[in-house]
Nucleic acid binder design. Sequence first.
RNA 1: GGGCGCAUAGCUCAGCUGGUUCAGAGCAUCUGCCUUACAAGCAGAGGGUCCGCGGUUCGAAUCCGUGUGCGCCCA
Length: 897
Amino acid sequence: MTNQAGANVTDAAKLTQKKCHKVTFAVPMEIPSQYAPRQVEQRWYQTWLKHKAFASTPDHRPAYTIVIPPPNVTGVLHMGHMLNNTIQDVLVRRARMRGFNACWVPGTDHASIATEAKVVQKLRAEGVKKSDLSRDAFLEHAWEWTHKHGGIILEQLKELGASCDWDRTAFTMDEVRSDSVYQVFADLHAKGHIYRGLRMVHWDPEAKTSLSDEEVIHKDINATLYYVKYEVVENPGTYLTVATSRPETIMGDVAVAINPKDVRYNALHGMHVRVPIGGREVPIILDDYVTTDFGTGCLKVTPAHDWNDYAIGQKHGLEVLDVLNEDGTLSAHGLKYAGMERFAARTKVAEDLKASGHLAKTEEYASTVGTSERTGAVVEPRLSLQWWVRMPELAKPALDAVMSDEIQLIPEKFKNTYRHWMENVKDWCISRQLWWGHRIPAYFYGPGEHDYVVALSAEEALEKARAASGRADLTAADLQQDPDCLDTWFSSWLWPLSVFDGIRNPENPEIQYYYPTQDLVTAPEILFFWVARMAMAGYEYAGKRPFERVYLTGIVRDKLGRKMSKSLGNSPDPIQLMDTYGADGVRMGMLLTSPAGNDLPFDELLCEQGRNFTNKVWNALRLLKGWKVSDDAPADEAAEWAVTWFRALLDAELSELQRDFDRYALSEALMRLYKLTWNSFCAWYLELVKPAYGQPISVGVYRATVDFFDTLMAALHPFMPFLTEEVWHLLSERAETDFLDFATYPTSGGTAYDPTTFAIMEEHVVALRTFRAEKNIAFKSPLTADAATKPAAWPAIAKLTNTQWGDAEGGLPLRAGTFELRVQVAAEDIDVEAEIAKAQKEIEYYSGFKRSVEAKLSNEKFVAGAPAAVVDAERKKLADAESKIEIAQKLISQLAG
RNA sequence: GGGCGCAUAGCUCAGCUGGUUCAGAGCAUCUGCCUUACAAGCAGAGGGUCCGCGGUUCGAAUCCGUGUGCGCCCA
């Protein structure tokens, strides 16, 4: 059927293209030779949605629940989401197929600081300042922004194939979730877990808000250390030198501290120094905290601008002089620098100190600086009145749960980190000076720090305020609600409970059925932000763990090992990737290389590998669909052999697959299926059962083949939902709604598999193929071979190598593993010298090997000390080596003779 | 500075409690192929002081010590 025109076209193409596509002709049916994923994917996802394939309601089956780590509502899908959600989908789909009532709850997070920052930025671009707007007006803009950009990411997740129950989509600021937040705030406050306190906090001068410890990212920097001279008041003309990295805070100095044991400064005890700018006199104080070997051993004490200085200040009863405004410019205490931006002020102060002769020297040193996770601004320590959650008591059960594996971390190595953090947990600053978020439900009725009530509504607040103040004449106008918002994590920590309305209605059937959830899939970066706190909330509000296991993914990095980020521009666009490789291809690309907890060095090549695999599967389908099935097809021993072999192999691999999943080794599970499908099924099995050209295939073999293919598709479905669904429906007549998700996940029957039969067959085939290649004998011309004993798998060997069993007297000895064949070959096809040289090399190698084994076996201690099985194995090695040497020697004598 | 972890083929990684799963996989590379499912393919091949050093043992990639390099968390 070779089409002459077609052949000409390819030849021509070959001249211009490095890799040319074959021109297809006479395709048995209308299935294209290349799989086109995008149409298939869209079609199936719509069908799934139409039939609510992923919807879940409580029933008699056991529940399997995952709550999505809610992405930022206005965000777009990035590679981290791709990884994270692919993993969740694999777990959920597999659970569904295993008979669980699988429920994957989607949703989004209002992302207080990030969203507010974006809205502020957008308004600024339009010439509107946040400070010019009322709270309500600003919130209107924020909601508008949220509605405009909100939910895009969820649509993108659908492209990925995420099998979420979309009817359950939740938002951290919708009614149920908001009510839950307020209720929890009120409850924790009533229990005394929430309090107000004046403390040092991390301050983001760009967002003008406080941050929690976890929202601060420490970065290594090269800092400059300034050596500044302070004149000793009691001894004019003499100076004490202080090393500081922050000269702009000098105006806030209230003391200079030295270590009492530092003998260099004994003479200065009890004296004072003059601050070089402003000229205030401050005492020299003694404190053990000061290290004698850093800088000069003298520390300027600026309680308003350093955590340690604040502690020293407290201890010594020193004043707090705040030289900075909330936006990071210098305040009135900054004297003539007032109004300057902090870093500009640093440079200017240093210049002025130098000019006045107070700057002794500067030196570079490696230091770290805290930056805001969301805005990137260098954070300032700032003394302010904030709301706090007392942690130790809440943390205790959450710590114990992980230590006892009631909540299992995967991989386990994160347990140590978790414990370390939980044992040193500090109180959680939950107030943010932002408008976008849950407004703190505290209402002030008087000027006092404690003149407030916590209430769930303005009416309730008024009632409580009247009672608290004893003033029945209070009106709503007398109440001032706290202007601050709650930390975003104060709503996300309730997520596994709140998505089932478990805070407001703890007895409702949904929370009873779905909670605790089974798996949580998230990044280790938010282990403390989120995971630990969900555990705390879970025990506090449900008395139970929120999840059984936490699967921690790694960070997606580029080839250079850099974290993928928008600012670096090194992150591929996931949608574009899916357009190029198909969602299944990309899913596979993400999973091929990501063991739990390991970073994922992303390479598009992996997606290509995934895409190629989908195409491979697709073409296996084409092959099957092209076969004619017949009741009276000629008997095919090779095919029969293959069916028996593959059935056993498949069963054994399914058992290993189960073990991979049990260990949450998803990449290994996928790789196992990849090899099983491509190598075992396509490369060996299908070649063995493939009927001769134009011949039909027997019904029995065909049915077995379809059955195997079905099983592989089912096993692969969690990883590649679209392709497998498509193939599953094309393999056999099936109703549209007969989704693979509702099929049973294949399991092993537990039969033992002995790999030696196949291995012997493979060794013979490889030997004969190599033989052909070396002698340049075309596949079409049959070989004739024999051996001392005919291998059991001979029909298979014969079919794959086009070799006949027959008298090969005088043929060339051919070693296949530890077996020996004789292959008839024309004398002119033999390169005698080369054959002898090859054989001699082999003798040399195996003689050396034999000596080493003999040495081992003659070692009495080894024979006495090692278990019998090991000794036997060594003896077998020896025998094998001897037989190989023998074959080679025989070959030489034959050729030479 | 305190804590945790890692180092195996060019790359990404498997190798459980020491011994035939012991030096492996996938990708990449090389060679030959448009063979009637698939060139997004087929067949074959090469490639490693298991980071260095020392120890325990009949036997170490695997256990112990130490050095080096890298990563993460906390201060």
